[in-house]
Nucleic acid binder design. Structure first.
Lengths: 120, 120
DNA sequence: TTTACATTTAACCAAATGGTTAATTAACTA
DNA sequence: TAGTTAATTAACCATTTGGTTAAATGTAAA
C-alpha cells in the first residue's frame, strides 16, 4: 500500500486516533496506553491497533526490560497534511472571493509578493 | 461511523484521491471521471468509489438528463485538516527549537504579534 | 418505438479489518 | 527455581472492502 493510503487508513479509526492523542502528551508503554480502552476491548486488540500505527510509521517502539515505550512520529501526518493543503482554497475562501482576489491582483499589476489572502 | 473516521477512510484509497484531484479542477460526470481508470477497473467499481466519497460528504452529485455531475465538497477535508493541526508542532519544529523560540520570546518580552516562527 | 447511452444495482467473491480467547515469549522478582 | 508481569502471537470469526460480471433503470435520439 502506498504511504499516504497507509497513513489515512491508520487514522480512520477512533481508537488509533485516541492512542495518538495520548502519545502527543508524552511517550507511554503499551499497558498504560491500553488502560482507557480495556473496558471496550482486549489488550491484544490494542496491540493490533499499535501495530497498525507502527506499520504506518506513526509511532515507533523501543524495548526497555519487559516494557515497550511508544513514541509518536508525526512525519506521515505532515505528508498527509501537505496533501490536504492542495484543497485549502476550497474551504478557506469561496470561489467568488478567490475570483475577487484575482481581479484585485490584476488591477494592482502584481504589486508585491503578497500571499493568497487569508481571511483573518 | 464517526465523520472523521469516514473522511480518513474515504481518503485511504489512491483511486478516490485521484477522483478528488480531478474534481478539484472542475465538476465532472461519472464517465468522464471514470475514463482514466477503466484500464484498471470496471465502471461499477468507480461508481462504488464515488459512493464512498459521497457518503463521506466529500462530493455531491446532481442529475442532468442521464448524466450525474459530481462536485467536490471540501468541508470534511477542512475538519480532517483541523484535526491534524493538533500535531503540527510535532513536525514543524523540533522541541529543542520550540524551547529556544520560547526563550527568545521571553527575552524580547513579546515585542510584537510575531507568529510561532516557521522555518522559511 | 426501438435503440443507444449513462449510470446504478444485484449477486457474488477474495482479501482485509477488527475483534475474540488461549497460548507463548521474555524479563523481572521472591 | 518458580511465579508474576508486559506484551505478543496464534487461531479463529464476523463484517467490511474492493473488485467482478450481468441485469436493470432512466433518459435521449433515430
Amino acid at each position: 500500500m502506498d504511504p499516504l493510503s497507509q497513513t489515512f487508513s491508520a487514522l480512520a479509526d477512533p481508537t488509533r486516533r485516541a492512542l495518538l492523542a495520548k502519545l502527543s502528551i508524552g511517550d507511554a508503554n503499551v499497558s498504560d496506553l491500553a488502560k482507557p480502552f480495556l473496558k471496550d476491548m482486549s489488550l491484544p486488540a490494542v496491540t493490533k491497533h499499535l501495530k497498525v500505527l507502527e506499520k504506518a510509521g506513526l509511532i515507533t517502539k523501543s524495548k526497555e526490560a519487559q516494557w515497550r515505550s511508544c513514541k509518536i512520529n508525526a512525519e506521515p501526518l505532515q505528508h498527509a497534511s501537505h496533501w490536504m493543503e492542495q484543497y485549502r482554497a476550497f474551504w478557506e475562501e469561496s470561489f467568488d472571493r478567490l475570483d475577487e482576489y484575482l481581479k484585485t491582483m490584476t488591477a494592482k499589476k502584481k504589486t508585491k509578493g503578497k500571499k493568497h489572502g487569508r481571511k483573518k
